[in-house]
Amino acid sequence: MKLLSLCLAGTALLLSACSTTTPDIIDPRTFRAQGNEPGWHIDLQNGHASIVLNYGDTRYTSSAAQTLMGSTQTRYSGQGPNGDWTLTVIKQECSDTMSDQSYEYTSILKTEGKTLRGCGNYIPQP
């Protein structure tokens, strides 16, 4: 019985030694979500957000926490000057009817008591 206890304790110790935590992978790309009426966009990169609302009348930066909501949805959130904001990004084709451009992602921004819908893509790096 003592030998079994020692074996179980040793196995638990080995398993805990094998488990590692990996740091968040930093994505060098910028994701841009944008919409119309009123014009807005948000750029996300490395845990930060640059937000432009109301055709450019409101601009601010914020930290952006990322939460995976499944295999096709990611939610970003942060604090703006007028309260919290959240951006839900859905891996679903989106069409901007004003520019007739297609995007890989649908985006929903909730901020300042409004829900703004739009599209999004990763911005190509030079």
Score class of each variant (00 low, 15 high):
7 C>Q: 11
9 A>S: 15
9 A>V: 10
9 A>D: 04
9 A>I: 12
10 G>P: 00
10 G>C: 14
12 A>H: 03
12 A>Q: 05
13 L>I: 12
13 L>M: 13
15 L>P: 02
15 L>Y: 09
16 S>K: 09
18 C>R: 11
18 C>H: 10
19 S>C: 10
19 S>N: 07
19 S>I: 13
19 S>T: 14
21 T>E: 09
22 T>E: 12
22 T>H: 14
23 P>E: 15
25 I>R: 15
25 I>K: 14
26 I>A: 14
27 D>R: 09
27 D>A: 04
27 D>S: 10
28 P>Q: 07
30 T>A: 07
30 T>P: 00
31 F>Q: 01
32 R>P: 00
33 A>G: 15
34 Q>W: 01
35 G>V: 03
36 N>Q: 12
37 E>Y: 11
38 P>G: 10
40 W>S: 06
41 H>C: 02
42 I>L: 15
43 D>S: 10
43 D>L: 12
45 Q>G: 05
45 Q>P: 00
46 N>C: 00
46 N>A: 15
46 N>Q: 13
46 N>G: 04
48 H>C: 00
48 H>Q: 14
49 A>L: 00
51 I>D: 00
51 I>H: 00
51 I>K: 00
52 V>A: 10
53 L>G: 04
53 L>I: 04
54 N>V: 05
55 Y>A: 13
55 Y>E: 09
56 G>Q: 03
57 D>Y: 10
60 Y>W: 09
60 Y>F: 15
60 Y>H: 14
61 T>C: 02
63 S>L: 08
64 A>I: 05
65 A>K: 03
66 Q>K: 15
67 T>I: 09
67 T>Y: 07
69 M>D: 15
69 M>G: 11
70 G>V: 02
70 G>D: 03
70 G>P: 01
74 T>M: 08
76 Y>W: 08
76 Y>A: 00
79 Q>N: 13
79 Q>E: 14
81 P>F: 06
81 P>C: 09
81 P>I: 08
82 N>W: 02
84 D>I: 03
85 W>S: 05
86 T>S: 02
86 T>E: 05
88 T>I: 13
88 T>K: 04
93 E>M: 10
93 E>N: 15
94 C>I: 05
94 C>F: 05
95 S>T: 15
95 S>P: 00
95 S>R: 11
96 D>F: 09
97 T>V: 07
98 M>K: 12
98 M>D: 08
99 S>L: 09
102 S>K: 14
104 E>A: 15
105 Y>Q: 02
106 T>W: 06
106 T>M: 10
108 I>M: 10
109 L>F: 03
110 K>L: 05
110 K>A: 14
112 E>Y: 04
113 G>K: 03
113 G>C: 07
115 T>V: 12
116 L>K: 01
117 R>I: 07
118 G>I: 04
118 G>D: 04
119 C>V: 06
119 C>L: 04
121 N>F: 01
121 N>A: 13
123 I>M: 12
123 I>H: 11
123 I>Y: 11
